[in-house]
Structure formats: C-alpha cells, structure tokens
Design a protein around this nucleic acid. Structure first.
Length: 632
RNA sequence: GCCGAUGUAGCUCAGCUGAUAGAGCAUCCGACUUGUAAUCGGAUGGUCGGGGGUUUGAGUCCCUCCAUCGGCUCCA
C-alpha cells in the first residue's frame, strides 16, 4: 500500500503495516522519537493499522500534539501510581495542558506534598516496566461493568455522557476510559516531576465536590526536565511581587488585603505611564474627566450594576442613604453626558478618566497587582452615532496595538466575548453589537478567539490578553460596545432633522488596569525597565570620598537635565555600590574618581552590560536625557 | 468562596521527637579612601501572624481567625 507523507511523497509499505512501521521505514531516529501519528489529520496510536492512500504524519515530542500525547500518557501513569498508593482514591479526569498534565482524584484523606516523592517513585517503577499501553474498543456495557467493579463513580458519569462506543486504554492491570491516543508503552515517560497539588471542582462547577488535582510535567529526557525546572526558577525570579519588594516599588499589607501601597519609586513609574497615557488621549481628542468614587444607590439600580454586580460592590451610608463605591466608571460618564444637550455634530464625544474603582474580589483570587480590590482603569467612554461604531472601534484597537508595542509587547492575544447568561437588553441588539465587533476584527485581519458567554452584562467585548512570566494569561485592554446604558439613562442628541435620537456608547480601556499592566510590564522586563520608565535612571558612584565633590557636580548636571539620578555617597567600596545599583536594576551608573574629575568625564556602566568606558560628562548627560524621553 | 500548603528580626532562612530563639544580608557606630557585582570590626533588632486551648512548661501539639502561596470557581 502507499502512504502519503506530509511532504506529499509516497512511501510503499506492506499491507497491515502500522504507523510505527512507517516511522521505522522513514528513519531509525524517527522510529525512536515517534510517539503517535496523525492519520488523515486525526491523531492515532502508533500501533494503528494504516490503509492504502492514507496521509500520515509521525508525531514526536517536538510538536504541540506530541507533547499533548506524551503528557496525557504521563497523567495516566500518575493516576495508576496514585491508586497503587491510595487504593481508595477515585479517578476523575486527567488531561494534558499547555505545560504538563494533571489528574483529578477523590480521596478519603488529602494527598500532601510529602506524598509526592512516593507517587513519583511509583511512577518511575511503572515506567521502568515498559508496560505496553493498549487501546481497547469495548461496548458501553462492558466498560460500565468494569468501572462499576472498580467502584469509579466519576468514570461511570463520564461514560454515561459518551455517544457511541467507548474506548479504554490499559497499561497492565490498570485501565482508564480514554479517547487516546497514547505513547506505545510506559517506558517512554523517562523524566517526570510532580509539581503541585490543588483543589479543583468536579466538572469545573463550584456546586460540585472539590477534588484533589495533582499537576506534573514530564519529558522524554532527564536533561529536558532539568532545563524546564531551571526555566521555572528563572521565571519565578521575575515574579512582579518579588520585584515590587526588591525594587521598593509597592507593597501589600494584611491591614488591607488586595489594596496596593505604592512607594516613592513605584509612583514614579506609575506617574510616568499615566503621563504618557494622558498625552496620548489628549492627542486623540479625548476630554479627561473625573467622576466621584461614591454615588448613591439609585444610580446603580438605574445602571443595572445593582442587579448584576452587587456581590462585588462595597457600600457605605451617607445621611441614611446607601451609597456604593464605584466598581466601574461608566455611570459617572453618563451623568456628564446628560448634563447638557447634544447635537449630532459633536460626535464622537470621547471622555477619558483615570478611574479608581473598588471591587470586592473573593479572598482566594487576589494575586499581587494582577488581581486587586482597588485599581485604576485608564477608562474612556465614547458616545457616537451608529455609523461611527466600526471606525471608532478600529481606532481603539489601533491605539491599543500601538501602545502595547511602545511598552515592548508584541505578543498579545485578542478575544471576542459574547452575550453572557446574566445579560441586559434585547438579544437583537446584542447580535448587532457582536456583529459590529466581529466585522472590525475581520476587516483588520486580526487573529482572535471567541469566548462565548464572557461578555459584560451590558454588551459584548474585545479583550486583549498578555501573558505573565509563568505564561498565565491576563486580560488588559478591553473594548465594549453598549446599547444598554444609553437606553437606561435615556441619552439623547438632536439629529440633523431636529428629532431626538439615542447615541451608542463604547467603553474601552487600553491598559485595562494600571496596576495589572505595571505588574505585567515588570515581569516582561524582569524589572530592568527601559530608561524612560526606570524609577531611577542613573546612579552616580564616587570611587572614594576624595572624588565626592566632582560626584556631586555630576549628580547636579544630570538632575538639571531632568534625569532621575541618585548619588551613592556612602562610605563603601566602589564594587559594593556597583553591586547595589546592579541589583536595583538601575540602567546607568556613572563611576567617577580622580581621573574623571580631572578630565571632566564619567566612566559609564550599563546595567548587565558592564563597563562602557569613559565619556565626557556633557555627552553622558545629553545621551541619557535623550534616551529618557518618552517615545512619541 | 472552595481545596491544599505556608506564616520565626526590614529581607532570605535555620530552629530534631515540647524546656521562653539563631545565621547571613540590610540598618546604626567605628576603622579603611578604595578603579567596575559584596572591606573589616562592633552594636541594635523578634510578646516566633492574632486569639484561645492542652501541658509543670508551647516557636514546636490542638482549635479558631487573619494574611500569603499554588490551584479551582470568578474577573481588569
């Protein structure tokens, strides 16, 4: 029979050959690295028989699919090991994820981190046996009998939902309900490490029982595992919570969980970003506004927040009337709009606001600057005519894209979120709004993912997501189209013919949350911020007290040029001061001694890059001042 | 909110099966006056997250609350 390879070449194999035979026929190396196959674009086991004219691609660990198969098999081995050690543990589900695998268990007593080494050791035993992993097509009745006998309620529940005949995969005595494919035998999983234990709800619903989830990672080679562990350790060093502490930017205190305290250096960074954003908005024709943080209950009923968002709001009483601390800025913007009569000639009307919002996030979800209870949105509300919707959304997407590039992000994901369960307004309006957003994305040829049901309660949205140091993805920018608020607040404008009409509202934020964006940026740069953002741009380091006078001169020259500069006048060795400045990730160090004082120069040292040699004080100052200017 | 873990000096951590706490760094004082990632000596610093309990005796054991970490659920 003939097999079509990915490069369209044909390979002739004897009848009855499998994907494993094909791999062997192509090269010994591929035979060794093969994990599974893609037959006519469907993933299959290496042992799957091939047929004449099949298109076959051999899958190795190098591909995303290969990793997924490898990790899926690893999760089965982990489950077998757990049941060997905890015979009463019930197995739930165990898939591969982006970075490794997990398996959920229901256990009598909790599995502790102390138990992980024993489970790992058991896994290694199973791996050492090189037990074949075999696919079995069985009848539903047989599968049911098997899992009933094993007393596996979760598997029975899953089985119940399967259409058609189920498949089981066995490795020796142990079997699991699984679509597959899997690696040919347990011996493939040579390097494995269990990473963490966590709770996870059965089928992802908080109404269900919480199971114990074990996370792990595995590789075909030990060296790859070592590399991965080193990579994780490096990534953890750039955790923004760590950097915030080390660089003295911000802190958190038990006195107010989820409420960040910004320190002096952190505020420099914060204000630099805010100044940049403000200038950008003014240039784009926005009017900056500021609306109150506390507004009465009635307003929140009118906006719909009371019904849809109350659990996340904070309240206070003023003169016996309940007031809410704003969780969003939109109602304030709406009141400003309503404060005067509007003409169709004015549109688009664009209000922007650095809006400080408070949201009661559940205790367990707080996470550094990424998830807080108080944050500032670079919010804006655009009121426009229906035909301006698409151009306005296009403009917003362009400015988000451009701004992220300015801050060094080229890798971000876009997601379109559609009507949620808790929604306001007519479904037809929602359809219109969703279509408008989709049209813009399609016209701009943006790659995006659709999140059904993830929209805001008043409208669908396009979100921008950036990944943190451990590749967890966080939403930053957002564009939301809203036909509801104008309706609820009875917004009007006079059209050309003098009739009153209703404008459309667009909510948008570019950073999303200043706090979250700063956190992401710190991780992105591992704390070594570009000069224009660095809280301290240059440190003057005198070699000894003898050159202190000249060091002060250098300091004042920098300071006068607007450079954020500090002088290290401590009675310490130069090496000590350099080390200190390096650990603080200060981009420039100006080392000055008697030689420099004599020649009116500075010895320039760049963070990480080391000694750059001497240059004149004047050119040093102008070079940094130029680099420190914010990008246009 | 849920599951699990953790909480000892400003920071990073040690403190075995219970006998009222230690190190390094930081800080302060003194000496050194130095050429590209840590000079030397000395000193200060902790009701061991809060509260309750068991015990002759608790950093250590138990309960509870708070915070943090990893996830789940939820979200910018």
């Amino acid at each position: 029979m003939n097999i079509v390879l990915p490069d369209k070449n044909l390979k002739t194999l004897p009848d009855g050959a499998t994907a494993a035979h094909l791999a062997a026929a192509i090269s010994p190396r591929l035979a060794k690295e093969a994990l599974a196959a893609k037959v006519n674009n469907i993933l299959a086991d290496l042992g799957a028989p091939l047929h004449d004219n099949d298109s076959v691609e051999i899958i190795t660990f190098d591909s995303v699919e290969g990793k997924s198969v490898f990790w899926h098999s690893s999760s089965h081995i982990m489950a077998q090991a757990v049941q060997a050690i905890f015979p009463s543990a019930k197995i739930a589900i165990g898939p591969a994820i982006d970075n490794g695998f997990y398996y959920d268990f229901d256990t009598d007593k909790p599995i502790n981190p102390d138990d992980l080494p024993a489970i790992e050791a058991k896994m290694k035993e199973i791996v050492a046996k090189k037990t074949p992993i075999v696919r079995h097509a069985v009848s539903k009745a047989d599968a049911e009998k098997y899992f009933t006998g094993r007393n596996e309620p979760y598997k029975l529940e899953l089985l119940n939902d399967i259409q058609g005949e189920p498949t089981l995969y066995s490795q020796g005595e142990w079997q699991d309900l699984c679509r597959g494919p899997h690696v040919p035998d347990t011996g493939y999983i040579r390097a494995v490490k269990l990473l963490s234990i966590a709770g996870a709800y059965w089928r992802g619903s908080e109404k269900n029982k919480m199971l114990t989830r074990l996370y792990g990672i595995s590789f075909p080679k030990q060296s790859q595992l070592d590399e991965y562990i080193t990579m994780i350790e490096e990534a953890q060093k750039r955790d923004h919570r760590r950097l915030g502490k080390d660089l003295d930017l911000f802190s958190f205190h038990a006195e107010g969980a989820g409420f960040p305290f910004w320190h002096g250096r952190g505020m420099v960074l914060y204000n630099t970003i805010m100044d940049y954003s403000r200038a950008m908005h003014v240039a784009a024709g926005y009017q900056e506004v500021k609306t109150p943080m506390i507004l009465n209950e009635e307003l929140w009923h009118r906006s719909g927040h009371w019904d849809k968002y109350r659990e996340n709001m904070y309240f206070t009483t003023i003169d016996e009337i309940t007031h809410a601390v704003k969780p969003m800025n939109c109602p304030g913007g709406l009141l400003i709009y309503k404060n005067s009569a509007h003409s169709y000639r004015e549109f688009p009307i664009k209000y922007c606001e650095f809006g400080l919002v408070h949201r009661h996030e559940k205790a367990g979800v707080l996470h550094g600057l990424f998830r807080v209870r108080q944050f500032t949105q670079d919010d804006a509300h655009i009121f426009c005519l229906p035909h301006q919707i698409e151009p306005q959304i296009t403009e917003v997407i362009d400015s988000i894209t451009a701004m992220y590039r300015t801050f060094g992000f080229s890798d971000f994901a876009m997601e379109l979120s559609t009507r949620p369960e808790k929604f306001m307004g007519a479904p037809e309006l929602w359809d219109r709004a969703e279509t408008a957003l989709k049209n813009v994305l399609d016209a701009k040829k943006c790659a995006y993912k659709i999140n059904p049901g993830d929209g805001a309660f008043y409208g669908p949205k396009i979100d921008f997501h950036i990944k943190d140091c451990l590749s967890r993805s966080w939403q930053c920018g957002t564009v939301q189209l809203d036909f509801q608020m104008p309706e609820r607040f009875e917004l009007e404008y006079a059209d050309a013919d003098g009739t009153k009409k209703r404008p459309v509202m667009i909510h948008r934020a570019l950073f999303g949350s200043m706090e979250r964006f700063i956190g992401i940026m710190l991780e992105h740069y591992a704390g070594a911020l570009p000069v224009w953002l660095a809280p301290v741009q240059a440190k003057v380091i005198p070699i000894s007290d003898k050159s202190m006078a000249y060091a002060q001169q250098v300091y004042h020259a920098c300071s006068a040029a607007g450079i954020r500069v500090e002088l290290d006048d401590r009675s310490e060795k130069m090496g000590y001061k350099i080390r200190d400045a390096e650990t603080k990730k200060i981009p420039y160090m100006a080392v000055v001694g008697e030689k420099e004082a004599e020649a009116k120069t500075v010895s320039v040292r760049r963070h990480k890059d080391g000694d750059q040699g001497a240059r004149s004080l004047e050119s040093f100052v102008s070079a940094i001042a130029a680099e420190a200017k914010k990008p246009s």
